[in-house]
Nucleic acid binder design. Structure first.
Lengths: 205, 205
DNA sequence: CGCTATTTACTAACTGATTAGTCAAACGAC
DNA sequence: GTCGTTTGACTAATCAGTTAGTAAATAGCG
């Protein structure tokens, strides 16, 4: 964004975020320690503590890092056509993660800590609200243009979010490889059957 | 099973399972220690180790205990009428958990450990297969009776499972109180729009 | 019945490893 | 030389798990 790093950008914060990711992937949240992050970082544990006062600070920063990455991928959808935009959004939410499965695992682990760490919960809520708003906006835009049925946009957006979160959870927990694909199909069925107006329908099943 | 306990059954295993539940609820999986379980149990840590060799053994036993409880609630649905049975199943999966939210939290926490503990993953897969089979059977039964459209029952069952898991995840992670209610409504929309035949349709929205 | 023998269920005290976090000293770059 | 960064050695707390010993219930047996 600022300037392309020549070879390797020795930005300590970025490096520590990457190291945290690798450590989280390798050992899981429950066994995520400063020592293990330091090992991935290639420096001592004190070096980590120089950049982040406490473990909680580091984890909060890491969560921001993770969620920002996600927001970035959604933000670069430029299309304004409701139908196409909906397709692309659903792809970003349900198809792209296939290639970033360990990020999905990391995310779920952080998520399961939300009930115990208010900082986590707030960040997830904020991120969710952003995505949900994007969906709701597309639906409302579609309704205005007569492409979508005049449904409760808020409910429809929440329904799609449930499908997204369900697929992600199942991919991780049950190692169900096609959970995302099934969800993509289900989301399409939902859009076609509940949202799309008759004239736009091109036959389900 | 053997004989009804007079006042309180001092079955140590059952007591330890309850203690584990309370400790998990209070501290979360990442901070779940033998000591904390022992505190809930009201005995020493060695007492826990007397009944369960390792922490992993205890947690595996606890997961069995949790999942058995869940299976029991689904098993006592007696209705054979496909439409009614589907409604009751969805209620069990999406309405009942409202009153057992901390069990939902405990479950999600255990779930997020699945990628790192094969024993956990297998148990969740088994439990999921059971529930999914129940749904698939109802759908197939409905298709046979002409109440449901001749759809891909396997896919429809998976779609409903995604909705269930999504709602549960969101309830826990985002503290979204009406996620389960939204999912219940979405599941009904799905059943009505995708499954139910024209004659059975009583109008959505 | 009555007297051991064993089993069940525990406790207090411990071990060695690991945890997050601290700090004085030192390194390397400008 | 000094500022930003890092290290090694440290602390106090906590971790899972072990040990020896004990009190009470249960079983075997005459």
């Amino acid at each position: 964004m600022a300037d392309p790093p020549e070879h390797t950008a020795p930005d300590p914060n970025e490096e520590i975020m990457r190291a945290t990711y690798r450590a989280l992937r390798k050992h899981g949240y429950a066994d995520l320690t400063i020592k293990r992050i330091a090992e991935e970082y290639g420096k001592s544990t004190a070096a980590i503590h120089y950049h982040y006062e406490t473990k909680d600070d580091l984890l909060a920063a890491y969560l921001d890092y993770l969620l920002d990455q996600f927001v970035d991928t959604v933000r670069d959808i430029k299309t304004t056509d409701p139908e196409e935009r909906m397709e692309l959004l659903l792809d970003k939410l349900l198809v792209d993660p296939v290639d970033h499965q360990d990020m999905l695992i990391a995310m779920l682990e952080m998520r399961s800590q939300a009930p115990y760490k208010e900082a986590f919960c707030e960040r997830f809520q904020q991120n969710d609200e952003y995505t949900r708003y994007m969906l709701k906006a597309v639906i409302n835009h579609g309704i205005d243009e007569g492409i979508f049925e005049n449904v409760d946009a808020e409910h429809a957006a929440r329904a799609l979010m449930i499908i997204v979160d369900g697929a992600r959870t199942r991919t991780v927990v049950l190692d169900e490889e096609d959970a995302l694909a099934t969800a993509r199909r289900t989301a399409d069925e939902y859009v076609t059957a509940i949202l799309s107006t008759e004239e736009a329908a091109d036959g389900i099943e």
